[in-house]
Simulated assay, not measured.
Amino acid sequence: MRVWLACFLVLFALAELFDWLKAFSLPLPIYILGGAFLAVASNYEKIIGSYFSDGSEQSQVESFAPSTDAIPLTSATQVVDAQQEEIV
């Protein structure tokens, strides 16, 4: 019985809160400032990084590219030959 009563009270409180939030409104400038804040916050690294960059943006991009030096390059015929040697 306590669980039913607790669930009823929680759902009633949520319904009343939702009803109150539906009637709540903010002026347009608050929405504009909020949107500007979200835009700045989501692009913070790009904005702040541009002030402190030393022109090495290309090297930063290259550092994230996978290196092909560690991977030995083999032709398809070498792979097929190696597989056939293992079978025989």
Rank of each mutant, 00 (worst) to 15 (best):
K22L: 14
Y51W: 11
S50D: 01
D19H: 04
P72L: 00
D54Q: 15
P72C: 00
E16F: 09
Y31R: 06
I48W: 08
Q58C: 03
Q84P: 06
W4L: 11
Q60V: 05
A36M: 10
S25N: 01
G49A: 09
L33N: 08
A15N: 12
F64C: 12
F8K: 08
D69L: 07
A15T: 13
L21N: 05
V40S: 06
G35I: 08
A36K: 07
E62L: 14
G35S: 11
V61Y: 03
Y31C: 06
G35K: 09
F64K: 11
F24K: 09
T68K: 14
P72D: 00
V61W: 05
T68Y: 08
V10Q: 10
Y51T: 10
T74D: 11
T77I: 14
V88I: 02
E16H: 10
C7V: 04
A82K: 15
V61K: 13
Q84W: 11
L28F: 13
W4N: 07
K46W: 03
Y44V: 09
L21V: 06
I48A: 12
F52W: 02
P29S: 05
E45F: 07
S42Y: 15
K46S: 02
T74E: 10
F8N: 08
T68M: 13
L9K: 03
L73D: 03
A13K: 06
F12Q: 12
F37W: 15
L17S: 08
G55M: 00
D81V: 07
G55Q: 00
I71S: 01
L73P: 02
F64N: 08
F8E: 09
A70M: 06
G55L: 03
F18V: 08
A23C: 08
S56H: 07
I32D: 00
K22F: 05
Y31K: 03
V40W: 13
L28S: 10
Q78W: 03
A23H: 13
S25K: 01
L17Y: 09
V10T: 12
S59Q: 06
S25C: 04
